[in-house]
Design a protein around this nucleic acid. Sequence first.
RNA 1: GCGAGAGUGGCGGAACUGGAAGACGCACUGGACUUAGGAUCCAGCCCGCGCAAGCGGAUAGGGGUUCAAGUCCCCUCUCUCGCACCA
Length: 862
Amino acid sequence: MNAKYTPQQIEEKWQRHWEAGKTFSVKEDSQKKKYYLLEMFPYPSGKIHIGHVRNYTIGDVVARYKRMRGFNVLHPMGWDAFGMPAENAAIAHGIHPSVWTNENIAHMKKQLKRMGFSYDWDREISTCEPEYYRWEQLFFLWMYEKDLVYKKTSMVNWCPDCQTVLANEQVEAGLCWRCSNEVSPRELDQWFFRITAYVEELLEHCDRLPGWPDRVLTMQKNWIGKSHGCELSFPMADGKGDIKVFTTRQDTIFGATFMLIAAEHPLVMELVKGKEREDEVREWVDKIKKHDKVMRISDYYEKEGIFLDTYCLNPVTKNKMPIYAANFVLADYGTGCVMAVPTHDQRDFEFAKKYNLPLIVVIQPPKKVLNVHTMTEAYVEEGILVNSGPFNGMENMKALDKIAEYLESLGRGKKTIQYRLRDWGISRQRYWGAPIPVVYCEKCGALPVPEQDLPVILPRDVELTGEGGSPLAKHESFVKTSCPNCNGPARRETDTMDTFVESSWYFDKFCCAAFNDKPGLDRKALDYWMPVDQYIGGIEHAILHLLYSRFFTKVLRDFGVIGVDEPFTNLLTQGMVCKETMKCRQHGYLFPDEAKEGRCIHCQEEVVIGKTEKMSKSIKNVVDPDYLIERYGADTARIFCLFASPPEKDLEWSDQGVEGSYRFLNRTWRIVMDYLDDIRDIAPFDGSSVLDGDLKNLRRKTHQTIRKVTRDIDDRFHFNTAISAVMELVNALYQVPRPAKEDLTALSVIRETVDSLMLLLAPTVPHFSEELWEMMGNKVNTADSPWPEYDPTVATEEEITIVIQINGKVRGRISVPIDEEEESIKSLARADEKIVKMIEGKTVIKEIYVPRKLLNIVVKEG
RNA sequence: GCGAGAGUGGCGGAACUGGAAGACGCACUGGACUUAGGAUCCAGCCCGCGCAAGCGGAUAGGGGUUCAAGUCCCCUCUCUCGCACCA
């Protein structure tokens, strides 16, 4: 008899069972309702960390639950296998990135299997294989044809540490998203995906994603950054041409007194060409260009500019406006030129003060009067227009449209929309990525690789030195090729694609992993499985990955490859796993096992407990999943991750909490084992006889628990409260006096409770549940059993407590049958000794009765 | 600066649409069983006064709406996250 709970043995047994029986492999089945559950696939960095454990446990519970509810569940797993760490490891240790990556994949796969996740491993994909990335090269060609791919020379974000370009989305406050080093500008030839072609749809569809957290949608909307405004043109004072600006504040046009141009803008040098100041301006521009982006956005640099010895005219006031180049104007937003209204824009105000430029107030606030001589900051609130010709006296916000129309009638402007979103630069000067399928011919220029020549396979035999630049550029047999147009000598593109390209369509590939005909995606399979019903991953991908995936889905839809507009119907962003940090004065940060009884194991110095932060190797506050599995088993790790906090919140790791979860499993195991011999051959209670007392209560509690757990999982993924409900049921089972062996009715009620417990726990602690379930003599595994149903009649309480309030304060409680009439409750309350005393001598103004909850008697003195 | 979210016992967290604040777990305290237990089972556990039944207070702080507010509204404070010279 297996009396003791030994997770290690049980877990291996069931994992073998699932693998041998291919329990979780799925096929399209038009008879069954599909459910596609996806967790963000991992980068194979080497080992699974607790963040993965949490993410995948949440997903696994939902997948297993939906399966028990009768859905045809697709729950795949794969590897986001291209990326820089592989290349860095190659440079540091002389291992080829593919070897490093594949070894990591093998190890992490083993770890995932040890967690008991219900993946369909037949669909495993690895994005670094040509069978995968060849299709994205094909999509690239199609996009090229549709003008959704283009090349341009541009200032790019260059990370000197990673030796590569970063997309705008990958620069965080001027720092590289990966290595946190400063990003500097650099001029490079880059390939771009025209994500801006879909900007309006990407924005509009945000409102069609009710299953996404508001936070993520807001972040996406802000990132897209739609602004309504005007494009205005200001004639040059010398009559030669004009300068165009974008503004959202055309209401302030009468106050525009000077013009600003981004320092990097080509117009700057054009305007001073041949003038006395040309050299001075060039020097200044060069200086500004050298400033790091990170410095320019901080307050470190003051606003500064340089006069270009040129004027334009304000189209409505006809005033002469001096033109300056300025360091704070963005070259790639709007037209790169800005009309400056110093009275109503703080930046322009500071600039005007510094260079002694004229101010004109055009908006007066409601309560005070602005004076250009005494103003200390720009007035940016709403007000009444002044000094604005025909618009004087209007509210500035209401004048926006009128002024736009007026400027339009003058032929000086038109309403436009600007977006913050820029196109997605995908060129990376790295080796370990998908080659961009392009060749350069001396005669014919840049040409896409013909479709029949795909895939462009990433060669294996390269030398990785870490000296910068792509190693592919030095690989002669890769680089040298012939022009598809003239057959003359040509060179291949040696940049590779941003790895976010692979993760923008992997969820499609999972639907048809084995499908290898053009275009690599099987429309029939996609039509069955897509969209993903539930996507789960970290909030850190709220913009990057999720926006790119949405874009790619729309592109593939327009190619007819897929039939959905949006890839992910519901999105859950799980919180981070945090833990307190520990420090020793001599040895710095300590790993958990470097501290024993509050002392450092190296020097016996007392350990200082630091603040709780996201688990990270660099501050050593990590927990090794392997250790957890060995010590407690995967089921304990799983249930703890779910129980400690709701999934969208951060989880604070607690070793004692893990112990508590382990204790709960042991406690449950013990009571089931205790009853095992008596209930193994007994069928669950079928409702054919009338129960009372403890048994009736236990059965009610059982059905209530089924109801609670079902709702908690279904409605809101609150696994923590679902688990606490199950704990209550176990506690209730312990409270029931042990029935006699002959009391078959009692034992059948116990059996019903134990069966329900195992089924309710099956998605959370699958090995544990399967083992006990099997021991109880069940023939069909929990994984293949239907989710338990509750009987609402059984779950309903018979006696309820009605709270009696006087003036909103709880003054008593009475116990009544569930269907007690309002009138009789009122008279019961009035008869209550305590209540009588409290309302004596007072006037009852009214009584508020909330059915089955409370009675509030409102009284007043006298 | 702009935007979003959060603030509840010693701790993690419950409280669904306004209706018993603190479920469940951890920690702690006591008891039982034990040679022993850091195993297990049972019980107690927001704060103040009280032997007690009870009374009063309490959901960051202040105000409001309501018969009734952790929940709705307004103001203030604190923290977290995202964007950040986007004209």
